[in-house]
């Protein structure tokens, strides 16, 4: 089967969810209730808005991740041809990883890998 038939899998997945949810929307009995549609917060009414600028402690992680994820993409082609090229590929990846490792150590030492 060709790669294009991935579309099929996509369609089947969408159909699976769509049909089941559609069925569930039509068949089961419904009861309208204001309290029921409240967001759950242990039975207490929510105070204030839910969507706020959320202070998460991993912005720096995200940046480091971005760098590393891009790097990983570069390593994949190398991995495939490593066996055939041999020594030169090894030296090159050593240099590559040296730089990458330096980056990681730098980030580590600078405290970017610490949750703030």
């Amino acid at each position: 089967m060709s790669n294009e038939s991935l579309v099929l899998f996509f369609i089947v997945a969408v159909a699976l969810v769509g049909l089941a949810v559609g069925f569930s929307m039509i068949i089961p009995p419904k009861s309208k209730n204001l309290v029921k549609s409240e967001p759950y917060e242990c039975g207490i009414e929510t105070k204030g808005t839910t969507w706020v600028q959320f202070n998460v402690g991993y912005y720096l992680f995200a940046i480091v991740y971005l760098v590393f994820d891009v790097e990983t993409v570069f390593i994949f082609p190398w991995a495939v041809v490593m066996k055939t090229i041999g020594m030169r590929a090894f030296v090159e990846i050593l240099i590559f990883f040296f730089i990458l490792g330096l980056g990681l150590i730098y980030a580590w030492k600078k405290g970017a890998l610490k949750w703030e």
Binding site: S24, P28, K30, S37, P39
Partner: peptide, 12 residues
């Protein structure tokens, strides 16, 4: 689960 009501949350 199929026979259960789908609840949508206000303001979601």
């Amino acid at each position: 689960l199929l026979m259960k009501e789908l609840i949508t949350i206000r303001k979601a």
